[in-house]
Nucleic acid binder design. Structure first.
Lengths: 142, 142
DNA sequence: GCTTACCTTTACGTTAACGTAAACCCTGTG
DNA sequence: CACAGGGTTTACGTTAACGTAAAGGTAAGC
């Protein structure tokens, strides 16, 4: 019936998405409970659109960045300003800017941590080379 | 005895650190329970060294990056290779590299998200300007 | 000596993000 | 038709990272 769509507008089952993004179906349903996803239904069964798939991708990226699901939902809502309501939009813009400030702080944290790890790796390597001087591995109040 | 140190080697109370980093004393004690901090004691009271302060800073940075306390402890341990043990060092280097790979993925996630947010902010601003065309705010399967 | 302001331990409560199990419904296939 | 392989809801369990009392010790200042 509807399987003759050659266009990229396909649809996915819950386990399709679960496999593709390596999450459990339980998690996907949980995101729905929390209002992050609202797939259509064929009877009982959930049917996911490409847009749903994109939202799931955003959720997972948010997770990798340490966002809560509530925060990810905020971000997802920023993509689809459901409104004409100007005040809503102004609030959204402030939320976006706050979020961006936070993420930029995170970025700076990351850069520092990467450098630090690089250095400690180098220290480890050095220590491996001259594996005799115990004084080298003293703590000496870094 | 040892109080005649004019050097920057000061010491801090638990509430000193709590105020400076805007965390609760409960949290700081919790980090100690989890083995991330081991301050000295004057009787019952905890006394924190500059090194302890640095460790706390690392813990909080880890938190901002979405690390668990266990992961932060791993990272802190990377700074103080307590050992001469070569096998330990090799394991540490691998852990560091894994962590760095993960952080670099996080970095890429961050860059993408920053661009996305920038774009959605722009969309909001545009929508504010021409606050009439309802068609503009359609969902249209992004 | 009493209050105030810190510090301590012990322990139960809470929230987020699912895991896990039970019990069930469809649907195609040998 | 049995059953294997999907899907569903409902609901209790779990872990991390603290919050929040409760109950008390200690030192400073009036």
């Amino acid at each position: 019936m509807s399987t003759d769509t050659p266009t990229p507008a396909r649809s996915f089952s819950i386990s399709d998405l679960a496999k593709e993004f390596d999450v459990t179906t339980r998690a996907i349903r949980f995101y729905e409970d929390k209002g992050l996803l609202t797939p259509e239904r064929r009877g009982q069964t959930r049917i996911y659109s490409p847009a749903d798939r994109t939202k799931l991708k955003l959720i997972l990226r948010g997770k990798r960045l340490g966002l809560t699901l509530d925060e990810s939902r905020d971000i997802i809502e920023m993509y689809t300003p459901d409104g004409n309501n100007a005040k809503q939009l102004v609030k959204l813009i402030h939320k976006i800017r706050d979020r961006r400030d936070y993420l930029e702080q995170q970025m700076r944290d990351l850069e520092v941590m990467l450098v630090d790890l690089q250095e400690s790796e180098q220290r480890c390597l050095d220590a491996l080379q001259e594996a005799d001087s115990d004084a080298y591995s003293q703590v000496k109040d870094w």
